[in-house]
């Protein structure tokens, strides 16, 4: 069992994204807002001649906005589009020490929609994030 996960921090909690999904981790600077776009879409930014859509993970989870977002941001590719995830911090790349497990009692509102399960790591239990659900934003919950 050697799947690698990128551990990130959202709203003070640890979460993990499959490292295979993460293209790179970039420094977020120069984000260009998109007028009339949903709130969790912070804007566009550029990486190596490609444009990325920046997603504010707190807002995408339906949580309150916070200024404490870190500089570093993982880049993921979903359905051919590149997204930069605005998170509190990019923590580490770790190996999972367990299979994906359900969490007794669920993850709570917001998190429930994006959670695939829980994995054990050296840093303790971490929520495994469904990136596709995350970038769909809080409104997708209703659907």
């Amino acid at each position: 069992m050697s799947t690698l996960y990128v551990v990130i921090e959202i709203d003070g909690r640890l979460a993990a994204v499959d490292a295979a999904d993460v293209q790179s981790v970039i420094e977020l600077e120069n984000v260009y807002p998109v007028p009339r776009a949903p709130a969790w879409v912070t804007g566009l930014t550029a990486m190596r001649s490609q444009s990325l859509t920046v997603i504010d993970c707190r807002l995408a989870l339906g949580l309150a906005a916070a200024d404490m977002a870190g500089e570093r941001s993982p880049v993921v590719k979903v359905a051919g589009h590149l997204y930069a995830l605005k998170v509190d911090a990019v923590d580490d790349v770790l190996e999972a020490r367990s299979e994906v497990m359900p969490v007794p009692g669920g993850f709570g509102p917001g998190w429930q929609r994006i959670g695939q399960g829980m994995i054990e790591t050296d840093r303790g239990p971490v929520l495994l994030v469904d990136v596709e659900a995350l970038i769909a934003g809080p409104e997708a919950k209703a659907a």
């Binding site: 776009a37 879409v41 550029a46 051919g80 589009h81 934003g137």
Partner: peptide
């Protein structure tokens, strides 16, 4: 280039470019 669906949905934009 095509835009992410979330931005496409706003309807104001047809694409993005650098």
């Amino acid at each position: 280039k095509p835009l992410a669906p979330a931005i496409m949905q706003t309807g104001f934009y047809s694409g993005t470019t650098l």
